[in-house]
Design a binder for these strands. Sequence first.
DNA 1: ATATTATATTATAATTTGGTAATATAGTAA
DNA 2: TTACTATATTACCAAATTATAATATAATAT
Lengths: 108, 108
Amino acid sequence: MKPVNKQVYKYRAEILKALAHPLRLAIVDYLGDGEKCVCDIIDYLGEKQSNVSRHLSLLRQTGIVDTRKEGLNVYYSLKFPCTNNFFSCVDNILQRQHEEKKAVLKQL
Amino acid sequence: MKPVNKQVYKYRAEILKALAHPLRLAIVDYLGDGEKCVCDIIDYLGEKQSNVSRHLSLLRQTGIVDTRKEGLNVYYSLKFPCTNNFFSCVDNILQRQHEEKKAVLKQL
DNA sequence: ATATTATATTATAATTTGGTAATATAGTAA
DNA sequence: TTACTATATTACCAAATTATAATATAATAT
């Protein structure tokens, strides 16, 4: 494997790692609805403020979301361009997983 | 957030976590070329056998790859349906990241 | 100025993940 | 049978990730 490729995989892995957490996926999905302030996101997730804030900052660092400050509030929005395609791909794997499990059970 | 959604995000996160590693991304990319035996993959990656084997088994467990045994060799192949769309989405974010960094530097 | 509110950051402890060496398994060959 | 080869699994330690509590910051209001 070429060193250049190695580097590309490393970069891609960073993006995927940033998405690979239930709360962060929930945030991304929630923001699909449009810009939200942190307080909304905290309410929606029902998680501790510091926890949500840390996940948000990771998403921002990675360039998946954008922020805008207005008074005391900070508004987060998606910069992630292709949520639908992306997740339908993931869900496709999930469906297969499920079908395989069903097939195994059928054999009993 | 509904508990059902929570579960979906957890499942999705598991798939993404399985992909979110440089070596595993390299494997997925390499398999895009067609079925390969473990020995080929080890050579390609230049990593320890046990390490490669562990990454492969994770990919299999998650349903991202499939295996077929032939004599002493085990052949791995992609079950992942939409590599191109998927990664172009990730690369899109990487490009934006890069452009933003460039823009920041320009301001000096 | 002080108080209040929304959000971010830091420190910490628990858990998970990653790499390696050693060992196990399973197929083939002699 | 024994030996050999390809791959998988296990046990171990180091490093990264996570959630929480505590603290800090920054904008507004009094």
